[in-house]
Amino acid sequence: MSTPLVIGTRVTREYHLGGELVHALRGIDFEVAEGEFVALLGRSGSGKSTLLNLLGGLDRPTRGSIQVAGRELASMNAAELSLYRRTTIGFIFQSFNLVTSQRAWENVALPLVFQGVGRAERKRRALELLEQVGLGKRADHRPTQLSGGEQQRVAIARSLINKPRMLLCDEPTGNLDSNTSAQIMGLLRDAHTKGASLVMVTHDPALAASHAQRTLRMADGAFVDELPVPAVAGGGA
């Protein structure tokens, strides 16, 4: 039995909103196996994005522990977290989050800028990925000149450029029609096939069922019915 890539233990995230304490995550336990494709389902406000942000090191848990590849995220400082994001994680958002003033290839290459990779090498690798997502001819276009689906493909290319071990997708098809969604899901599956672990937030149970190896259902900051441990890694059930 191999060690899971992610081990979350009593992960709690609370927000102070005015005088109120908002329990976004209520001490949940979970695991994600290396190379696993997990879907996160749940109503709005159930804590899906909060969990994803914690996994991606964009946020820290109020309490509890998140270990990724043997390293404890909760105790990392800001510099260590940014290194973790830079090397281990690829983010894909519902609203694409491209830099509007930059060309497609520049957006794809953005993570490399912060790794200090030279421009020529950046462009070469970005074009390679754009080719993979079928946008080889759109490299010099700006996000405003691209459709939603194309923008999301650029975002996927960007998330893959640092060869991350884990892709975190927050409703990647939420803004897209079904045809385009299928295209995007195809790309994500490709990435998964090539070995990346995937955690994908979605509202669509059918989408989860047809692509993910395991679906975790959330409600009010906790998991419901499904076992939060991978069947493969857990060795049964």
Binding site: G56, L58, A78, A79, S82, L83, R85, R86, T87, I89, F91, N97, L98, V99, L110, P111, F114, Q115, R158, N162
Partner: peptide, 15 residues
Amino acid sequence: REIGIFKAVGATNFQ
């Protein structure tokens, strides 16, 4: 928002 993107793709605070 851009600053958020920079950080998500791994920019350090210093960068």
